[in-house]
Amino acid sequence: MLTIKNLHATADGKSILKGINLELPDGEVHAIMGPNGSGKSTLSHVLAGRPGYEITEGEVLFDGLNLLDMAPEERAQAGVFLAFQYPVELPGVSNVYFLKAALNAVRKYRGEDPLDAMEFMKLAREKAKLVELGDDLVKRAVNHGFSGGEKKRNEIFQMAMLEPKLCILDETDSGLDIDALATVSKGVNALRDAKRSMLVITHYQRLLDYIVPDVVHVLVDGKIARTGNKELAKELEVKGYAEFTGRAAS
């Protein structure tokens, strides 16, 4: 599904990713953990194509496509989905319009006919149930006036609608209380599939109690310092990242 080879990236001339290698097979869920400033969010941004980063070395293959050569919208159409750490508010743009435009762009790429308004609403109602998103939130302006938890649920709702191959969850747990975390995780787990891979980026082990990963990578100073199974996350919870950073756990 996804192969990252020796990926180096800079932002504002500062080196952030310093040679990442990662292989994410079909259907697997990999967690990327690491201390603040290790490059976790940068990795997710670079994979989704956010402007502002310079790739200085390396390559990323997604289903045989050279991901780094593609515009953000092409990546999304091809099946890459980034759930934002800070979902963006779009006053004046309804969730329904936004998602329909997005879904039909993705469907066009896949060679499928666009959905009409009826078909779309039927699908939206079904998927909204996954994350318990009410009809009013589905119809309101995108994330405008949503609570933190509602925004994150809306991200997973979008993910469910677009049915991506690769889901990148960037600190989806940040700002969520325990109930919201359970709801969001339930939605994510419902989307686990033998043909869908996930990269779950998080600072805390807590999320991985809900979304149980196949593999855990520890990212430190722009490189993967260690790879292990889900037990590695538990170990980090106890010991912190001090072993990797040389600093005491904060």
Binding site: A48, E73, A76, F84, V88, G92, F98, L99, A105, Y109
Partner: peptide
């Protein structure tokens, strides 16, 4: 740029994303 990227990251072409944001600026 955050709004623009958000729309593009959902598969919406840049030109259309611009049009959506432009319209939403005055629609209130």
């Amino acid at each position: 740029p955050n709004q623009l990227f958000f729309l593009r990251a959902r598969g919406i072409d840049e030109s259309r994303a611009r049009a959506i944001l432009t319209y939403s600026f005055v629609r209130s």
